[in-house]
Design a protein around this nucleic acid. Structure first.
Length: 280
DNA sequence: CAGGTCTCCTGCTAGC
DNA sequence: TGCTAGCAGGAGACCT
């Protein structure tokens, strides 16, 4: 499940291959990727556009074209692969970009959860990016920002960390890791967090995501940034998918619960509900 | 407005 | 061995 570090890894890999290249044609084999947008219109608009740059906003990839942004969200299992143009189209390859009549950039998504949007450059404020919260490294992300956003949130902090309208990029794996390093129980209500705990969350969000990017993302389940490219961050995980195993800090058994419908892993000893938080 | 539940989708796996 | 129910989950729709 690509979260921010995985998307960033994909972005870097794609940029090396695609910067300055031209999209000669577009084939859409599964219309739901573009949801209710007019696919025929999109094909006409995108033909002949050059890929000037590829940016990232939260978990969104943002292909900067001459006149448009192509926004792409990989959701659970979306990935891009880069092939010779004439190579056989395989199952689950849903969108094909003809690059310079020579290569084929293919969007593959087994579960078809991923989404794309083509938006005019001056209409980004009407796109799904408009509602996104702060990037983890934004200087405006501080205790008072979180305090304000969390003040009416009675939901468990685990759930609130996944809210992309507050801070972008955190998904299920890294939310658990951030809370473990911050010594905060995942059930604790967001609005009840102390200033110290909020600061730990900010620091550890940056630390966890930085480290994961450095290691090329976490390869878990079916995530790979590109065919043949796998990250190493799974070796850094303290709690995720370690239920029943020993806590690496205190040796207590890691617990798995469901919080907000998500598998949630934590150490019952390091992350006691009534502790004031700390930093590992 | 806050929050709970359902939905999308397919592959994998536990259990019989 | 083969079948099936259940699970995995990001984010938006819909309802209370």
């Amino acid at each position: 499940m690509p979260e921010l570090p995985e998307v960033e890894t994909v972005r870097r890999a794609l940029l090396l291959k695609l910067k300055g290249r031209k999209i000669k044609d577009l084939t859409v084999l599964h219309n739901n990727v573009f949801q209710d947008q007019d696919v025929e219109k999109i094909k006409k608009q995108i033909k002949g556009q050059s890929i000037i740059d590829i940016l990232r906003r939260g978990k969104w990839l943002e292909f900067v074209l001459d006149d448009y942004y192509l926004l792409s969200h990989l959701r659970m299992e979306g990935k891009y692969i880069y092939r010779k143009l004439d190579e056989k189209v395989e199952k689950h390859q849903l969108v094909l970009f003809n690059i310079d009549d020579e290569f084929s950039l293919r969007y593959r998504d087994v579960r078809k959860f991923g989404k794309m949007y083509l938006v005019k450059k001056n209409e980004l404020d009407k796109s799904p990016l408009a509602k996104l919260g702060l990037e983890p490294w934004d200087e405006n992300l501080n205790i008072s920002y979180l305090k304000d956003k969390y003040k009416n949130k009675s939901l468990p902090i685990k759930t609130v960390l996944l809210d992309q309208e507050i801070v972008v990029g955190i998904g299920n794996i890294y939310a658990d890791e951030i809370l473990f390093l911050s010594k905060i129980n995942p059930y604790k209500k967001a609005k009840e967090l102390s200033d110290e705990e909020l600061l730990h969350i900010i620091d550890n969000t940056r630390k966890v995501l930085d480290k994961a990017i450095e290691d090329g993302g976490t390869t878990i389940r079916s995530y790979t940034s590109e065919e043949g490219v796998t990250g190493n961050n799974q070796n850094n995980l303290y709690v995720h998918q370690r239920q029943g195993e020993d806590c690496l800090i205190c040796k207590a058994k890691i617990i798995k619960d469901r919080i907000g419908g998500r598998g949630t892993y934590y150490c019952p000893k390091c992350q006691k509900l009534n502790d004031s938080g700390g930093n590992i």
